[in-house]
Write a protein that binds this DNA or RNA. Structure first.
Lengths: 148, 148
DNA sequence: TTGAAAAGTTAGGCTGAACTAACTATATTA
DNA sequence: TAATATAGTTAGTTCAGCCTAACTTTTCAA
């Protein structure tokens, strides 16, 4: 019963996401890299790892490697999915510059609930379908933005 | 030179927005009402008012009325505009239930920058125009969501 | 016009999230 | 393999935001 609470703070979500991304190739994440990714001190990372371990989302021992638990992977994947849906909407449909879309997704991903993300994903699918069916929505919107 | 910093925290933005809305009819906002609106203690409101006064966004004296300064009005109006654009997108285009759209807008309004809001507004205009021109995008999306 | 209720403030405490500085453990390489 | 560089931890601090409890000020009605 180590798990203190189920809801993650925006900050802890960021850590989890960073670990997920860092571990995507090597399977493990190093403290130092997490710190660099999030522009945070190593001491802050240690603190976050303890909190995440407490919630049973990471396997962590002082001076040891960090890996995600099963639950950690699931949670992280959800966050990453949110991020990608958002970014895709902002960049591909609204036509916002990649870098800005990326940044915006990073922040908003913590605030938007499942209803919004689901609908957004559905909307992306819809637009894709419309584009395929000859009604070039994205193109039209782009034109609309350019004039005036 | 009371202004300590220019960037507002999400929390202070919430206070400013609440004051703006409360003052929209009576021109003044009472501490108690701010507290109720934000579900926060009266003591927290006092703290926030001091911070906002420090940034020269509200006129505030202990035990006195609260009004927005010129700068406060401008800033608050921006926040409210963000909120409305977001809510309109979520509710009118994505078809998300009003209450949920409202809540989501409350949170996301603090994280999205001007580029996103501008584009979103443009997108709403675009969809409105398309709807008027006979291509019922919103309706089509609604249908698309229903089937499957 | 005064005294009780309502509104607001102050004091003090808690938590989360960050920091620095100093320490410890691990890894590397001469 | 020992010394040094790198990585990670611990201790202690700060700050924002919130809280409660106790106090002060203002308002209003008998």
């Amino acid at each position: 019963m180590a798990n203190t609470k189920n809801k993650l703070s925006a900050s802890l979500e960021d850590y989890l996401e960073a670990i997920f991304n860092l571990a995507s190739d090597s399977d493990i994440a190093r403290s130092k890299d997490i710190a660099e990714t999030l522009s945070v001190s190593k001491a802050s990372v240690t603190g976050a790892l303890r909190a995440l371990k407490d919630k049973e989302l990471v396997n962590y021992k002082p001076y040891g490697f960090v890996t995600l638990t099963k639950a950690g992977k699931t949670t992280a994947a959800k966050i990453v999915r949110k991020h990608n849906v958002l970014k895709s909407f902002l960049a591909d449909i609204l036509g916002i510059e990649t870098r800005i879309a990326q940044q915006a997704a990073c922040k908003a991903e913590h605030t938007l609930g499942p209803e919004v993300i689901t609908k957004l994903l559905r909307f992306i699918d819809f637009v894709t379908k419309e584009n395929r069916n000859g009604y070039n929505l994205t193109g039209k919107f782009k034109k609309f933005c350019e004039k005036k």
